[in-house]
Amino acid sequence: MTFLLQKIYNTKNSRYYQAVLDIIEGLKLWRLAFSLGWFDIKLRYKGSVLGPVWITATSAAMIATMGLIYSSLFKMDLHQYLPFVALSTVLWQHGMATTLSDGCQCFLQADDTIHSIKLPFFLQALRTIIRNGIILSFNLVIPAIVFIYYNKNPGWIALETIPGLLLWLIDGLAICLFLGCICARYRDIPQIINSFIQIVFYITPIIWLPSQLKHRIVYLVYNPLYPIIDVVRGPLLGESVGLRIWMYALGYSIILWLFSGYVFIRARGRIAFWI
């Protein structure tokens, strides 16, 4: 009996148990995470008349400019190119790139809260993803307008983007935990990540079509961001994503989850001291 009680006590005090408990407790506080994420947006645009609409207007101007210039450079039909670049740019800029950048600041920006109130660390990751999800939803109106203008209707195949969005949600939380822990310890990492984002932007089909690679398109799957973005982008463009793309997307995601879980379990008890 004494051995059993000791085993239960040791389990409850283990890093693995505490990390899992942190995630569960954080999920229970999703309403608080949503309120904090919305408050972050209101605070960011405090005193602004248009608020997040400024980001949408800026993105729209950039997409229109890129569409006109690059369609001429690549000799692409604007009817085909502009919907692609509009959707790709919004998903990249306000989905992937923002998640990577904000993931680095996940715990650093919440240092006052972490030091003053005992809350699950996972709550801060959920808060970051919800904030970015709200901003992404604001900006999805841009490709929607472009689709309507060019009479591009993806049809029922667009529903296939739902599992892709769920994968993005889980991956985004994993990125926040992974980068949040590392950047709390090593403050030079955010600069490296920002440089990485700029480089990967040009080697990922965002402003150029995958078909432009012709027979070399098979090598695109070795860029982890390509299959992950394509499981969301493809169905919205009316293109069914093949099993091969999904296999790579899930494979890269599993690797990310394993690394994220390992780092969070190891670093969770020290985050408050690092920040």
Rank of each mutant, 00 (worst) to 15 (best):
L165Q: 07
L166H: 00
L167N: 07
W168D: 10
L169Y: 00
L169Q: 02
L169A: 13
L169W: 05
G172K: 07
L173D: 05
L173A: 11
L173T: 10
L173V: 13
I175Q: 07
I175A: 00
L177K: 01
F178H: 10
F178Y: 13
G180W: 02
C181T: 01
A184H: 13
R185I: 05
R185P: 04
R187I: 11
D188T: 11
Q191N: 15
Q191C: 03
N194Q: 13
I199T: 02
V200H: 06
F201S: 02
I203S: 03
T204E: 13
I206W: 02
I207M: 12
L209V: 15
L209A: 11
S211M: 11
L213M: 03
I217K: 02
Y219Q: 05
I229T: 15
D230I: 02
D230Q: 14
D230R: 10
V231Y: 07
V232Y: 00
R233E: 03
P235W: 01
L236E: 07
E239Q: 15
G242T: 02
G242W: 00
L243W: 15
I245N: 10
I245R: 07
I245H: 12
Y252D: 01
Y252L: 01
Y252K: 09
Y252G: 05
L258E: 00
L258C: 08
F259M: 11
G261Q: 11
R266T: 10
I271P: 10
F273T: 08
I275Q: 04
